[in-house]
Structures are given as C-alpha cells and as structure tokens.
Simulated assay, not measured.
Amino acid sequence: MNFRILWPPDESAELSSNDRSCVLLAIVGEHHLLITGDVGRDVERRLLRELPPRLTVLVAGHHGSATSSGLPLVRRLTPRHVVFSAARDNPFDHPASRVVRRFREVGSCLWSTAHDGAVTLWLGEDGRRRVHTERQTAWRHGGVGGGCLALESSH
C-alpha cells in the first residue's frame, strides 16, 4: 500500500481551515482510495491533474456538504464507491441532495455512516472488493445493482 499526501501545500496560512485539510490518496495495486477532508471545490479543481482517472473509493468531501464534491471532481473520478461520513440526524443535513445526485448520475455505490454505521471496505491485489456495514441494510428502498445500495438524501 502506498500513501500520497496531496494537500495542503507548505504555505497554506492564507487558506481557510477547511481548505487546509489533509488530502490523502492511498493506492493498493490497481485500486485508489481518496480522502479529501473538508477542502472545497476550488482546491478540488487544483488537484484534478494529480488524481488517477478513476477511483475505487472516495470519502466524500466535508461529509457530503454542498461546498465539496464538485461536478468536475465527480465526473473526472467516477468513483465506484462513495462514503459519506456523517452523523445520523445531523443538524447540517449531510449529505446534500445535489451531491448525492451527482454521484448517482455517474453510477457510484453510495454508503453513509448515518445509515450504514461503520463502513469497512477491503481492497486487494487479487481484484476482489468487499464491503461490510455495521447496520443491516435490508430496509433500504431499491438499489443500483452490483451489490450497491441506493442512498437517498433526506431532501
């Protein structure tokens, strides 16, 4: 497994605290996992040239907030799996409806810690991907195929 810290730059004092978030790319064989922290869409656009053409897993920026996971990033990376790290009944209504729709439009499997509990993904050289969630998911309505679950935003 290889790790690359893509952001923040050495000189980042002028950036907002969100845009000083650590952006981490993890590589396991042909699989790529990206964690973008709370960086906004401007930083995402700056990073596009450094990112692989496709991702296996993306931890959605800023809990699925409308300030992150911009359309250029989503369309460029078309992640297979997206994890929204958000609390159940959070006061910010994360993830934002339009962010959920962006990922659904590119065919991503969507997971939310608010609904699924802890989400564990295994990535390996053998090409097999496995996903395990702590909460039962049988109550979910529909799906998007291939073992994916259809996350619906609350709005």
Rank of each mutant, 00 (worst) to 15 (best):
R102H: 12
R54Q: 13
F92I: 04
L58W: 02
D89G: 04
R130N: 09
G142P: 15
F103V: 07
A13C: 10
Q136Y: 00
L121A: 03
S16E: 13
A114C: 03
W139I: 00
D89N: 08
R80S: 09
V131C: 09
D93T: 00
E14G: 15
G147E: 01
V100H: 05
H94K: 03
P91S: 00
P95N: 00
D38Y: 13
V83L: 10
R75Q: 10
L110F: 01
R102G: 12
E134F: 00
G142D: 12
W7E: 06
G143E: 12
A96M: 01
I5K: 15
W111R: 09
C109K: 13
A26Q: 12
R129M: 02
L6D: 08
G124V: 09
S12W: 04
D38K: 06
P53V: 02
F3G: 12
C22Y: 11
D116H: 08
V131F: 06
L25S: 11
W122H: 13
R130Q: 05
L121I: 14
G61W: 01
V43N: 08
A87G: 11
H132R: 09
H94G: 00
R76E: 05
G143T: 14
G37N: 10
A26T: 11
L149F: 06
S85T: 07
H155C: 03
G143P: 04
T137M: 07
V99L: 04
E30N: 15
T133A: 12
V59A: 10
S112D: 03
L51M: 08
P9A: 09
L149Q: 10
H63L: 06
L48F: 02
L149N: 05
A66F: 04
R104T: 07
P91D: 01
L51E: 03
L6E: 10
I35A: 09
F84W: 02
R4M: 13
R104W: 15
V23Q: 13
V43K: 12
T133Q: 10
I27M: 14
G40E: 07
R128I: 06
A138D: 04
W7N: 14
L48E: 04
L48S: 04
R88L: 05
W111N: 08
L123D: 02
L25K: 06
V28E: 15
R46D: 09
V83W: 03
G124E: 02
M1R: 15
G142C: 06
S69N: 10
G40S: 10
S85L: 08
L48K: 10
V100N: 06
P52A: 01
H63Q: 11
H62N: 11
V131D: 04
G64Q: 00
G117C: 07
L47H: 05
T67Q: 08
L34N: 13
H32W: 12
R104F: 08
C148K: 06
L47P: 07
W139H: 10
